[in-house]
Design a protein around this nucleic acid. Structure first.
Lengths: 220, 220
DNA sequence: ACAAAAGTGTTAGTGGTACACCCATGC
DNA sequence: GCATGGGTGTACCACTAACACTTTTGT
């Protein structure tokens, strides 16, 4: 509804980002150190206040650009956390985003940031543990009916690496033959002529995604 | 993140509700008349500003209580619309909710409100058409893997009525025998000893939902 | 007796799941 | 030649989808 000049009600508008990447096949989430008085030094998600004329998603990008180039990041609005008590410093409404980035695009890791296993997230400032949980749930759900996993992968990969990605995010093993049959029949990957080399075993064939960096709806 | 006293950035916080009900088997959405200058008299979703210490969902309930008792309504946060340009009167961030209510619980319809077919929504004020679209998409999606349809039904109903509800929301016909087999095998409904009476045809058996007003995850 | 909606089973096809061995390479 | 991970096919089972007639009531 429209603001009525006589009765304006304000809130502080913020955004927080649960940014994930797959590193050596493990799902990681980016944590930084809180700077506010109440939570000083505690791990938190990157985030902060949205400018008066700034799109919320742009602000989300701004808060992670120290850690990775936002251009390479897939963003999706997750949920809005607006409980009047969630920030002890006053009412802050935070629009949380899910972000996914291929590990190759991660910038140098500063001393204030760290990537921790999504399975072992420590206690975070504010309600950020709830944000991480919601993000994981969303990611796991979408894995099954979209090609969202592309946002976590480099351009070239082997089917075993892809399977490990699925397994690590879903938290369960998948059957190798059935997985390959399924992925190939969906037609979302195409094989290249390249092979992995230099490993003491049969070289893996390299694949690429077909509809490059587009996120469509499929079934797994 | 925490507000920093030296650099506060405010937004007007609002909420809008896409409230649906099934009336004679048809999915309807509640529209009211806009009161703001720019959109005076245009149809809009019910909504308005959130109080400084009010939970957003409570505000959403407050804005529909003229039309139905919020206790009987299923609420679910939908999406946050925060484009700096979305309200011509200034920056308003709206947290949109999906609401579902059984038609029996709808209060008297005032002159300023109307229930219109979800398939033929007129042009609405602000970006409210986008909110209705998002709500329909969410509702249709959840129909397939939750028992969310319960939120639109009275306690007692026939299987044909239930099927008509699914059909009208999904926008396609379902096979009667397969539908009944599926619903019964899911175990989400139980039959009662009652029957519909007074119609010039074979009376329908009356059913009830099993796990009353709880929303679990299933498959359709 | 007729109109109108309720109720009921079978079959064919598709997709999911379980499962074990050979292959290509580096050392 | 051995250790390591890569790569491949088949058989069974469960679920889906298509489909038409009989039943019960009111008039």
């Amino acid at each position: 509804m429209s603001p009525q000049k006589s009765n304006l009600k304000f809130a502080v508008l913020a955004t927080d980002v649960a940014l994930f990447s797959l590193q050596e096949g493990k799902l990681k989430v980016l944590l930084i150190k809180a700077k506010s008085k109440k939570f000083l030094g505690m791990p938190t998600l990157p985030g902060g206040l949205v400018g008066p004329k700034e799109k919320i998603e742009k602000a989300a990008e701004r808060f992670i650009k120290r850690y990775t180039d936002p251009k390479g990041v897939y963003f999706e609005q997750l949920y809005t956390f607006g409980d009047p008590q969630r920030d002890p410093g006053g009412r802050v409404v935070s629009v949380a985003y899910l972000g996914l980035v291929p590990s190759a695009k991660i910038a140098d890791i500063s001393a204030e940031s760290s990537w921790v296993s999504a399975r072992m997230v420590p206690s975070l400032a504010y309600d950020h543990n709830a944000i991480v949980e919601a993000a994981l749930e969303r990611l796991r759900g979408k894995l099954s009916y979209t090609n969202i996993i592309q946002a976590l992968f480099p351009e070239e990969f082997s089917l075993t690496e892809l399977q490990e990605g699925y397994e690590n995010i879903l938290g369960r093993k998948l059957d190798k033959r059935n997985f390959r049959k399924r992925i190939l029949s969906l037609g979302i990957v195409k094989k290249t002529e390249k092979q992995r080399k230099g490993e003491p075993n049969r070289p893996a064939r390299i694949f690429r995604f077909v509809d490059n960096k587009i996120k469509v709806i499929e079934v797994l």
